[in-house]
Design a protein around this nucleic acid. Structure first.
Length: 278
DNA sequence: AAACTTCTCAACCGCCTATAA
DNA sequence: TTTATAGGCGGTTGAGAAGTT
């Protein structure tokens, strides 16, 4: 809690910006509590943090949104709703505040007028997600303490140390990967239209060659999760995982990659998947 | 040129969650 | 377990700019 009396409010001055910039360059970003004292700024810590994040940080991209960014924003908003921080994480250089302002001024209650409204309708018509504004909430990564993924080794799951030994079933029976049996993915329930239409993910997976990683790291293949009725699950040993392609897929973000080559001989699939997404 | 309206966006507010004591 | 604090988020506000009458 800020106990500073008489903290300044309103627009920041150039002098305050300079003090804040110098302070953060000297002490780093992770010391917002001490910024007001060290930088001799009569502002509350929240105000300092916001000023840095939204205006002074060197990572911020200025200027108008590009066509690509607008397309991306529309699709992400359709998928995530008003989760501006998540959206900003997928729009490099754009802050949550920027995006929120842009959305509220350009799209909020204005779907029926102007050129951007036309763009909205265009995206609305071509978007691969359903017409209904279904918001898929990203799931937190919750790794059970006993999970071999957490322990950093797959050895407890009877894995093969040799990736070349990996087999993918081409039959309708359970797949095998790293020596583990996976249930068949015959059900398309929960799959995005992209995958259903292209059928490429499943085909490529069957061939054991390549696949996609969705743009949402939270929803990467095999993310451990809590079992519920909403998503297809994969049960491996005593662990429950999201089934491949079950949620969170988005054509805009799919990355082609050689699925099987990313699997370390003995290691963590998720770690490698994350590095692909950088 | 002045008055008024609309738009933009920086900043604030209140709430929630995580963490430390 | 409780309490205080920090971090983070989305919603809202208001000053100034831009546009219109």
């Amino acid at each position: 809690m800020d106990r500073l009396l008489g903290v300044r409010k309103g627009a920041w001055t150039e002098e305050e910006d300079q003090l804040l910039r110098q302070c953060i360059e000297k002490y780093g970003e992770g010391m917002s509590r001490q910024v007001p004292l060290r930088a001799v700024i009569i502002r509350c810590r929240k105000s300092c943090r916001l000023r840095w994040l939204n205006h002074l940080s060197p990572n911020i991209k200025r200027g108008g949104f590009t066509q690509d960014e607008v397309d991306l924003l529309l699709r992400l908003h359709k998928l995530l709703g008003n989760r501006w921080s998540l959206i900003s994480g997928r729009l490099p250089g754009r802050t949550a505040n920027d995006i929120k302002n842009y959305w509220n001024t350009r799209f909020f209650n204005r779907k029926t007028s102007g050129t951007i409204a036309s763009k909205w309708e265009e995206v609305e018509a071509t978007t691969l997600v359903s017409k209904k504004n279904e918001i898929i909430k990203p799931r937190p990564w919750t790794f059970p303490k006993t999970s071999p993924w957490v322990l950093g080794s797959l050895s407890s799951l009877n894995t093969s140390p040799d990736p070349s030994a990996t087999k993918v079933s081409t039959s309708n029976g359970p797949r095998e990967m790293l020596g583990m049996k996976f249930p068949t993915l015959s059900s398309t329930q929960g799959y995005t239209r992209l995958e259903q239409e292209n059928d490429s993910f499943d085909n490529e997976l069957e061939k054991g060659k390549s696949g996609y990683i969705g743009g949402f790291a939270e929803d990467l293949i095999g993310s451990p999760c809590v079992e519920d009725d909403l998503q297809p699950m994969v049960q491996v040993e005593n662990h429950t995982f999201l089934e491949e392609g079950s949620i969170g897929w988005d054509d805009y973000f799919c990355l082609d990659f050689n699925f099987w080559d990313t699997l370390p001989a003995e290691g963590n699939l998720f770690h490698d998947a994350n590095s692909l997404y950088a």
